[in-house]
Amino acid sequence: MQVKKFSTRVKIITAAAAVALAGFGTAGVVSAAAQPPAQPPAQPPAATKAAVPEKATTTSTHLSIDAATEAAQAALDAAEKEGQRVTVAVVDRNGNTIVTLRGDGAGPQSYESAVRKAYTAVSWNAPTSELVKRLESAPTLKDIPGTLFLAGGVPVAADNAPIAGIGVAGAPSGDLDEKFAQAGAAELG
Rank of each mutant, 00 (worst) to 15 (best):
P40Q: 03
S137M: 10
E187W: 01
P108H: 11
V156R: 00
R102D: 04
A72H: 08
A17V: 15
A18V: 14
P162H: 09
E112W: 00
I98K: 09
G167R: 00
G105C: 04
N94Y: 07
A15T: 15
D177W: 01
V168W: 01
L101E: 00
G83Q: 02
G28D: 09
T61L: 12
A118V: 10
L188E: 03
V86H: 00
P145D: 14
V30A: 13
P53N: 09
F180T: 02
P127T: 02
D143I: 08
A42G: 11
A183W: 05
K179R: 10
G170V: 03
D159Y: 04
K49A: 12
N96D: 15
A34V: 07
V91Q: 07
E187I: 00
T100S: 05
A126I: 02
V115A: 04
K11Q: 09
T26P: 00
S113C: 03
G146S: 10
G153V: 07
I144N: 13
A164Q: 12
K4N: 08
G83N: 09
A185C: 02
E70C: 00
I98F: 10
A72G: 07
A34K: 13
R116K: 15
P108Q: 12
T57L: 13
A15G: 15
Q2H: 09
D77R: 01
T48W: 01
N96Q: 15
T120I: 08
A79N: 02
Q39M: 14
A72W: 08
S137T: 15
E187G: 01
N96F: 11
A185Q: 02
K133L: 14
Y119H: 13
P172C: 06
V115D: 00
D92S: 11
T128P: 03
S64R: 05
A151N: 07
D104S: 09
G189M: 05
G28I: 03
K55Q: 11
K5W: 11
L131C: 07
V10C: 06
A72S: 06
I166D: 00
A16M: 06
R116N: 15
V29R: 04
Q84V: 04
T59Q: 12
P53D: 13
V52G: 10
K142Q: 15
L176Q: 14
N94V: 09
T57C: 04
E80H: 06
V156F: 02
A17I: 15
L188G: 06
A157F: 13
E54H: 10
A151F: 05
A68P: 04
A38Q: 11
G25R: 07
F24P: 02
G167C: 01
Q43S: 13
T48N: 08
R93L: 14
F180C: 01
P172V: 09
A161E: 15
D92N: 15
K117V: 06
A18F: 12
G170F: 03
K11H: 14
N125W: 07
I144P: 09
Q43Y: 03
S7P: 13
I163G: 10
P172F: 08
